[in-house]
């Protein structure tokens, strides 16, 4: 990934020198043509075309924004209810991710999902402990965390 990106930047600069115009517009055009060249020669690289990973990162970011808005609506509902009938609690969530930065990303995303907040992680990096505002509607959201977030993060790191 890093090598392909570096190559792409090199091609962009090469384009700028060939055109003898050192403006950002020339850089963008050169970057685009470099991307096209890399795409044509993609089967000669050992790892997959790096734009796939960029698309996966953008998808993860959009998911993050969506969950942030949903989680705010959820907390807002509990805040503005005249009679407070929440049942907070801490529950354990077993995870499959292995690398440190993947777990960090998952923890951060969980902190911004509806009514959940990561409190701690077990010593062997297998279980996340999550505090929930309302434990009743968490049982379903555990499945959605496992299905959406873990899958999206694996898509990036694959």
């Amino acid at each position: 990934m890093a090598f392909q990106m570096l190559l792409n930047f090199f091609l962009a600069f090469l384009w700028m020198f060939l055109k003898t115009s050192f403006t950002p517009a020339a850089f963008v055009v050169g970057f685009f043509w470099g991307l096209v060249i890399l795409f044509i020669f993609r089967s000669y690289f050992p790892d997959r075309f790096y734009l796939h990973r960029v698309v996966a990162i953008i998808k993860l970011f959009l998911l993050f924004i969506k969950e942030l808005i949903l989680s705010n609506l959820n907390v807002l509902k509990h805040v503005l209810k005249p009679k407070m009938d929440i049942k907070p609690g801490i529950f354990a969530l077993p995870i499959d991710l292995q690398k440190d930065w993947e777990i960090m990303l998952l923890g951060n995303l969980i902190t911004l999902t509806p009514g959940t907040l990561t409190v701690d992680i077990s010593d062997d990096n297998k279980i996340l402990y999550i505090h929930a505002v309302n434990i009743d509607d968490v049982k379903e959201s555990v499945d959605s965390i496992k299905n959406t977030f873990e899958k999206a993060i694996m898509e990036v790191s694959r």
């Binding site: 942030l68 929440i86 907070p88």
Partner: peptide
């Protein structure tokens, strides 16, 4: 802020502030 004043303990207040304020 309403949440931070009304919720009963630190953890729930943390929910209110770290989410709604961010957005």
């Amino acid at each position: 802020t309403v949440g931070a004043i009304r919720f009963p303990d630190v953890y729930t207040r943390n929910h209110a502030i770290s989410k709604s304020t961010t957005l």
